[in-house]
């Protein structure tokens, strides 16, 4: 315990200074949220590269939580579905159900090139299509994988902080 305490004192704050607030207009649906966004992640068939970056975005360095974003365990608690990967056949229906399970207003954010246009996996035998084909996407974050900063910026357009 003493060791951990020393470590805490030695490390101090690792969160980087917050970049300026993104200029983009917040979505009409996001205006309702008032600085609080709960996020449910859906991996619709990704290679897990985007998941690692999402993990980093919520880690101490980028600290998405300081803008009022929080990961939750159930789509019922969520305002935002963070969808990654090309949508595989087995995940198509679950993805639609997840979005349907969220209380209105609900927002879908597609993360990564695969989510936007199936990327590397386009035309694969197990791929049903991109996220855009399955559900209506409100915000998209391109990149393969996108940088954590880009994910954080996208989420900040939703929280408005």
């Amino acid at each position: 315990m003493g060791g951990l305490l020393r470590k805490i004192r030695g490390t101090g704050r690792v969160a980087e200074a917050a970049p300026p607030r993104p200029e983009a207009d917040p979505l009409p649906a996001a205006r309702e949220l008032g600085g609080s966004v709960q996020v449910r992640c859906v991996d619709a068939g990704s290679c897990n590269g985007c998941e690692i970056e999402i993990g980093n975005a919520f880690g101490p360095v980028y600290d998405a939580e300081r803008y009022g974003v929080r990961l939750v365990a159930s789509p019922r608690h969520a305002d935002v579905a963070l969808v990654t990967g090309p949508v595989t056949r087995n995940m198509a229906e679950p993805l639609r159900r997840t979005v349907a399970a969220m209380p209105q207003p609900a927002i879908v954010v597609a993360v990564g090139d695969c989510a936007l246009d199936c990327g590397e996996f386009a035309g694969g035998y197990g791929v049903e299509g991109s996220v855009v084909d399955m559900v209506s996407v409100d915000v998209s974050v391109p990149g393969c994988p996108p940088e954590p900063a880009a994910i954080v910026t996208a989420l900040r357009t939703l929280t408005g902080r």
Binding site: E93, P94, A100, A101, P103, Q104
Partner: peptide
């Protein structure tokens, strides 16, 4: 006044 919506049980999508 948001109307209370009936929704299917959350089944983890399955």
């Amino acid at each position: 006044r948001a109307r209370r919506r009936d929704a299917r049980l959350w089944d983890c999508g399955g």
